[in-house]
Amino acid sequence: MIAGRAPGLLRRIFRANQVVVVIVGFLVVWQVAGTIFKAPPYLLPLPSAILAELAARPKIYAINGAYTLYNTLIAFALSTVIGVGMAIAIVYSKFLEKTLYTFLVALNSVPKVALAPIFVLWLGTGDASKIGIAFFIAIFAIVVDAVLGLRSVDPEMLDLARTLRGGELKVLLKIRFPNALPSIFAGMKVAVSLALVGVIVGEFVVSKQGLGHVILVSQGVFDTTAMFGAIFVLAFLGTVLFYGIELLERRLLPWHVSHRSQRASTGH
């Protein structure tokens, strides 16, 4: 062993920036393999060419990326608020559990992407249809996880609450809802990625802007590099959204089991 420190340091850098390290590593392998095997650029452009394309036309990617992001965030926010509301209604109503929840679970097994053209018929060719599709795809994850979280309260905790004679609203606000938050966040992490998928699908069906539009138009003129440019931006957006929610979760739920070890090791 030359030094115990160097591997330790490497490991620490790796852990702190795990995502960045993995992605950069992937791009390096791609670049090297693409160069060695001389992949034709119209099939698989090199990462360096894609990054050059992004640098050459930053405005196009920024504007279209912002448009896609904007619709994604609206759909995500709507699915979170309405999804949690529906979950609360389902947990408190036997009737809604038997009807609405059963229907949602059945509907969830339909490939929802197939409904995208119908949303265009219903909501038109503008933003509304993209938001509608994304909302529709994302809300299931929220409802299912929120119902699970709201239900999985310790029965003895509920007994205790009943002997305190505080009423159902207090049980919801002080016990059920906080107890469900880790589960709701798990649903949100899935939902935010699904919302992005939904918006892109909507843009594939019909659009005048957005990253899905850039991909379609570039495909029409065999500009594979531009297609990958849009995909790079999409991957970046998806990753940032996911980790943004994870960061929010760490801030709001420091008490949750999955975050305790880190806190303990940083000392309190």
Binding site: L160, T163, R165, G166, K170, K174, N179, W255
Partner: peptide, 25 residues
Amino acid sequence: MVFQRDVLLDWRSILDNVLLPVEFA
């Protein structure tokens, strides 16, 4: 009431757990 398991709320400090009945009442 006291149960076999303490059923304290994880997201509350010990002080806030002790004060829970006050909020319910």
